[in-house]
């Protein structure tokens, strides 16, 4: 197989990789905020639930979570496609780490900002949405940038539950052509070429949002 042919064969898996990454990142993003706020809730029960979720996910391993969702859940009647399992496992995992980013950013907005907004008689909701969150969000960006990359890299794991992503394709082609060096070198390069612009993109946004303000 020529290098070009190899490349095209591999790229068939790109769509799967990007789909899983996109939906997992979206799910993780939403969960990060829901759980991040949950951990700061005034209601003890919500705090407890959020904390348990975060600690259980962070205390176990992504691949174990993926296998558990894909292989073990069907036994108690919850069945889903490999794609769904991949998205949910990566999203749940990312959400746990992301919620820490949200929580720590919110609590690191200086207390004076809250005091000033009380003095100006903003309602609690306005304080959060107009004053605290815009500042916290800028602090979250580097963390979310890293999280995106971690999730993208994590999508390679779905190849282990037989989903045809880039890594899965590489293994299949490797088994039939034995052009091992070429295949895995190209595979690494493809991942790098997806991740690199994502990293740079987040840095660019961060710069745009902070220039002259902090």
């Amino acid at each position: 197989m020529s290098t070009i042919e190899l490349l095209f064969a591999l790229l068939k898996g790109l769509r799967v990789t990007l789909t899983v990454a996109f939906f997992a990142i979206a799910l993780a993003f939403v969960l990060s905020f829901v759980v991040g706020f949950g951990r700061l809730s005034k209601i003890k029960f919500i705090r407890a639930i959020s904390t348990i979720y975060v600690e259980v996910i962070r205390g176990t391993s992504l691949l174990v979570q993926l296998f558990w969702i894909y292989f073990a859940l069907p036994i108690i009647g919850i069945r889903m496609t490999a794609m769904m399992a991949g998205i949910i496992a990566l999203g749940l995992n990312g959400g746990a780490y992301g919620s820490e980013i949200v929580r720590s950013s919110i609590i690191s907005v200086p207390v004076g900002q809250t005091e000033a907004s009380i003095a100006l008689n903003f309602t609690p909701r306005q304080r959060m949405w107009r004053i605290i969150l815009p500042q916290a969000f800028v602090m979250m960006l580097p963390g979310f940038g890293n999280l995106q990359i971690e999730i993208l890299k994590g999508t390679a794991l779905v190849s282990l539950i037989t989903l045809g992503d880039l890594t899965y394709r590489a293994n299949v082609i490797n088994a039939s052509t034995m052009e091992t060096t070429k295949i895995f070198t190209i595979l690494l390069l493809i991942y790098f070429l997806i991740a690199w612009p994502m990293t740079r993109g987040i840095e660019w946004i961060e710069k745009k949002l902070t220039v002259g303000r902090y």
Binding site: G112, I131, Q135, V138
Partner: peptide, 14 residues
């Protein structure tokens, strides 16, 4: 009815 000016200003940086 009340307003306040703080020692450390606490302007909104964003």
């Amino acid at each position: 009815n009340i307003g306040m000016v703080f020692q450390h200003f606490h302007l909104f940086p964003h």
